[in-house]
Amino acid sequence: MTQPGPSVSLRPVDAGSWRAVAGLTIVPGQDAYVAAATHYLALCAYEDVWKPLAVHDEQGAVVGFLMWGIDDEDGSCWLGGVIVDAAHQGRGVGRAALVQALTTLQPRDDAAGFALAYHPQNTAAKGLYASLGFFETGETDDDEVVARRRPA
């Protein structure tokens, strides 16, 4: 019997949660694929693209992070900077956070759907994203592979 995934909520990063987000850690070796949470927070603060979301567990603790933004060119909703704290990895938190994002966030143009990018050697991310309906498009963003998910 399959265990249900964890229950998470996505909340805007604010004065009460930014320190917990900045303190998120990743498993050694993941730094080849993802940046530190502080890097993503700086992108959100200083670029007019990304909006930061803290991933909270059922008790309200910050266990992860993701950011999102709308592409001005095609209206798609981009997801990025997905981090699950090292102590909470392997429990379905990342999947739950992405499902929550896909459920609550909306592309500007409904036909545009969702998009994200990941390092081509990050097979764990590739598998997770593919299981959620993302497919590689042949596009690249810097050194990352772009995957998109069509609207349901």
Rank of each mutant, 00 (worst) to 15 (best):
103 T>R: 15
139 E>H: 03
125 A>H: 13
100 Q>C: 10
129 Y>D: 02
108 R>V: 01
137 T>R: 04
101 A>Q: 13
107 P>K: 08
129 Y>M: 02
126 K>V: 08
124 A>C: 07
111 A>H: 08
103 T>W: 10
120 P>V: 01
117 A>Q: 06
105 L>T: 01
118 Y>L: 13
110 D>V: 01
98 L>P: 09
127 G>W: 06
128 L>F: 09
127 G>K: 10
110 D>I: 01
104 T>G: 10
114 F>S: 00
99 V>T: 11
115 A>G: 08
116 L>A: 04
117 A>K: 04
127 G>H: 13
125 A>Q: 14
123 T>I: 11
140 T>K: 07
105 L>K: 04
101 A>H: 14
115 A>I: 06
113 G>Q: 08
138 G>V: 01
122 N>E: 09
121 Q>I: 03
128 L>M: 12
103 T>N: 13
130 A>E: 15
140 T>P: 02
132 L>N: 02
137 T>M: 03
115 A>W: 07
116 L>D: 05
121 Q>K: 12
140 T>G: 00
128 L>A: 04
100 Q>F: 04
111 A>N: 02
130 A>P: 11
132 L>M: 03
113 G>N: 08
110 D>Q: 02
123 T>A: 14
140 T>M: 06
120 P>M: 05
111 A>I: 00
124 A>S: 14
121 Q>F: 05
131 S>W: 09
126 K>P: 04
121 Q>V: 04
108 R>A: 15
130 A>R: 15
132 L>S: 02
108 R>W: 07
98 L>W: 12
134 F>P: 13
135 F>H: 13
110 D>S: 00
117 A>C: 08
119 H>A: 09
130 A>Q: 15
120 P>D: 05
112 A>C: 01
102 L>P: 05
113 G>V: 06
108 R>D: 06
99 V>A: 04
113 G>T: 08
103 T>P: 08
101 A>N: 12
98 L>Y: 11
113 G>Y: 12
111 A>P: 01
121 Q>D: 15
129 Y>S: 00
99 V>S: 05
112 A>F: 03
117 A>V: 02
98 L>T: 14
134 F>Y: 15
133 G>S: 11
110 D>R: 02
134 F>E: 10
103 T>Q: 14
106 Q>G: 03
100 Q>V: 05
119 H>I: 04
